[in-house]
Design a protein around this nucleic acid. Structure first.
Lengths: 125, 125
DNA sequence: AGACAATGCATGCACATGCATGTATATTGC
DNA sequence: GCAATATACATGCATGTGCATGCATTGTCT
């Protein structure tokens, strides 16, 4: 009972430490080399899986681990840097389609190299 | 090569999702039931492992996954709630000992029950 | 002993985040 | 068709975080 709880807590501490270590390394290198935060990379990466039409913000919220307001502003930042476009869609004028641009794909492609290197170094370290 | 990178990226996405899911649940329940954030719980939990003398902040920084400035303010918050004491130590007057109070131990004990419940529910879900 | 670097912690600042709310559009019930 | 409700996204606000820096104390070198 108590020992099971201790085991759970220890497992959680491990997960926390692992996440913190990898996330910090990624943040540092992605930001340093490509001016992208981990969450920005995450969103951009998710957008790149879509075809040309893009993706409703509502959809993104489910995949990216962030509140709706945080996502809204994150897309704003990416838009300001020309990495994504915002398109209001015709069939539901409340909806916004976020669509990765060519510049976005280029930036992402560079960043993916860095990400792979960092993960290879830290994920199983 | 590329498939290895994809595997690494997928593993990282899993870790990210897992962390986000559990962390969100913990944050909600610890905050809701005990007015403690996950990081505050973490620090308090770490402090509880020390004997009565407490622990240098410098030591805590290594265990808690946070910057030195964030920790300094976190201890301030816990101090304001009467959960920890700050003692400047005699042998090195730059150093601060953080020491959990009885109220801190009581609050932690309650919160640990909640944490165990949440972890049991979410860690292997 | 005195100058100079290093260490431990606090704080100003910029910024990303979550919550609550606002605005516009869509849907439902009558 | 109209009113009420729900949905999609944006935004004001409070807060927690990291970085750079400041201040006090300690260690080092000569």
């Amino acid at each position: 009972m108590t020992t099971e709880n201790a085991t759970l807590a220890a497992e959680w501490r491990d997960l926390l430490a692992r996440h913190a270590r990898i996330n910090a390394a990624l943040e540092r290198e992605l930001q340093g080399s490509h001016r992208l935060s981990v969450t920005e990379f995450e969103a951009l990466s998710r957008l790149a899986t879509e075809d040309d039409m893009g993706c409703r913000l509502q959809q993104l919220v489910d995949d990216v681990h962030m509140s709706q307001s945080a996502l809204s502003r994150l897309i704003s930042r990416l838009h300001d840097e020309g990495l994504v476009e915002r398109r209001s869609c015709v069939d539901d004028r409340r909806g916004i389609y976020a669509c990765i641009t060519d510049a976005g794909r280029a930036r992402l492609a560079e960043a993916e190299v860095t990400q792979a290197a960092v993960l290879a170094r830290t994920l199983h370290a």
